[in-house]
Amino acid sequence: MTSTAVIAGHEVTIDDEGFITDPSVWTDDMAAALAKNVGIDELTPDHWTVIRHLREDFAAQGETPTLRRITSNIGIETKRLFELFPKKPGKKMAYIAGVPKPRGCI
């Protein structure tokens, strides 16, 4: 089930969990609005490093990287990921980056 939502002035299709269904429609200016929706008021350079990596890795692999893969790929610590995207880091960062939620278990 999909529906439409307006994110930072862009009308986009979202799935029943709220994720943007087509990663290609995502633009930088949507990230801040999406972040606010999950309780993150300001995107710092560290947030952006993770968001950019998610976009790049998804484009290259066709799959959203898991936390474990992100820490191995860009050397950021697990603890830091939980500070940047508290509670549900995997889903929150994917939501902000406009990619599907991660499917891997680790």
């Binding site: 307006v6 002035g9 969990e17 709220g18 606010k36 929706n37 999950v38 939501y95």
Partner: peptide, 14 residues
Amino acid sequence: TETEVMKPAFLADE
């Protein structure tokens, strides 16, 4: 306004 907060459904089950 444009900045209206819309909590996504995946956070509704917190």
